[in-house]
Structures are given as C-alpha cells and as structure tokens.
Amino acid sequence: MLQFVLSGVAIGSIYGLIGMALAISFYVTRIINFAQGELMMVTVMVTAELASSGYPVWLAALAGLACSCIVGILSYVIAVRPILLSNRFSFGWLVSTLGFAVIVENAAAYIWGPTSQAFPPILNGISLPIGGAVLTAQQLLAIVTAAVLAAGFEIVRRYTLFGKLGMATAADPEMASAIGANTTIVAIVAFAISAIYAGIAGLLIGPSTFANPYLGDTFGTYGFIAMMIGGGTERPIAAMFGGLLLGVCAEGANALINSQASDWFPFIVLVLILIVSPKGLFSTSNPLFRPRRVAVTRG
C-alpha cells in the first residue's frame, strides 16, 4: 500500500511537471502545445548525447535545458503566434503544434536513431527504506524537485510583478497590453518556462527510461491527462495535483489489479472525473473545490 503510494507520487510528480508545463503555456496563450512532450525529449536526448561524449553531467543537463528552451520558443514563434494573429478561436494551432511535434520527434530520430541510448545516472543505486516501503534517491529527488517547482511557480505568480503580469495577460490580454505589457514577450517567457519545466521532468525520468526520441509521445500524453484531471487549464498548479493523482492511480492499479492495469486504469479515472467535473477536479468551476472567488458582476 505505502509502496505504491510512494512510487505513484514519484512518477506522478513527473507527470505533474509536464502537465504544469502544458498548463503554463496554455495559461497565457489559450492553446495546448502538442509539442510539449517533445520539449522534454529534447532535453533528455541532448543531455544523454553530451554526457556520453564526456562532458560533466551538470553541464550536459544545463545544455539540454537550454536546447529545449530554444525549441520551446521556436514552437511559439513558428507554430503558435501566426495562428493567434490570424484568428484566436480557430483550431489551427492543433494542427500546427502537432506538425511542430512531428518535426522535432523525427528530427531527433533522424539525428540519434530510433533506439534508446544510455542516460547518465544521477542518483540511482541509493535507496531509502520508509516504513515498509523503499524509495530510491532518484524518486525522492523527483518528488522534492516537483514540490519546489510547483511551489516556486505559485510564489512567482502571486507575489512578483512578473507573475501578476502573467495573470493579467492570461485574464485579459488586450487590457494587459493597454497597461503597457508586451504580450508577445510575456508569451515567449511563458513558453520558455514551460520548456524548462518539461526539460526538468525529462532529466528526472531519463535515468529510468533511457534516452529515446519517442519519449515525448508517451509522457506528453500523460502530462496532458494530468492537466485535464487536475484542471490545469484554469490554474497551472492544479496540473501538479492531477499528476500526483494520476501517478498514484496508475501505480495502484498495477499493484492491486494486474501489471498491465496502469495502461488503462488512469483513463477510466480521467473519464469519470471529466463526467463529474468537465474542467478538471481542482478547477475553479468544480463546486467541490471552488477557490474563494465571487462571480464577475455584470458591467
């Protein structure tokens, strides 16, 4: 029982980070970046490549994050901005971000080949017994990092001018520009931050999955589910809660039903949650978890 909760929280914090990455870019631009999983993959591949050619792991990891940051900004400039400029409410972004994902994924497969490569171990090998269960240091690192990043995001959002500006841009982009905000810069920064979140998730999961160009598909999908379960489309932090729930459900299903159950059980959970609360469990529209906020008065 404790074992699957702990390992569920560990893997869930990875899903949560990717979910938050999706949610952060959605928050500012109102589009879902289908290339988000690929941004994570870019970090993993670049880090693995540099580490295997002899660079220190920390340097390789930094370079990997920088690369996914650049690719993330490119995804905004190439696949998102032209669509937003033409028509904010059409679904063209669905196609363009997916097209961007296809390009990145296959470019990686072209450069590094479709097979998995070694990823430098960061803290593997050490494990800590907790109660009757075991948590590897790698898992612990994932949980702590996710907690720090989630809390950090909330602190920045609520207590810094940039965070407040981000909220303002999310709520009313036109009014934000009318108080002097360059909304393009805000969006680019949001995409860069979301790329870093996805990249960090990649660094945390890399040692267990190895480096594979198709990593982005799987984890992008799980990140998306995390965001939807949590309701990250309204509050990015909710995607982290969604991720944790998803992780625990998946590991729990594996432990209690059968070893394949993690493939389908989370989806059942997702469907049930969306039937009850279409915008996610921790969203503002869910009466159960409604944060304090009064409906907008008509003006």
Binding site: K164, M167, A168, A171, M175, I179, G180, V296
Partner: peptide, 20 residues
C-alpha cells in the same frame, strides 16, 4: 466595462497600471 484583473487585489491592479 472597467476590465479589472478580477483575480487580483486592488493594490495589484493599481501597481500593474504603473508597469512601465
């Protein structure tokens, strides 16, 4: 329609006005 940033406090709204 005033278009305040409704999920932020009065003072934050005012400070955002002085962004530049």
């Amino acid at each position: 329609g005033r278009r305040l940033f409704l999920d932020q406090s009065v003072e934050d709204n005012l400070l955002l006005g002085a962004l530049h």
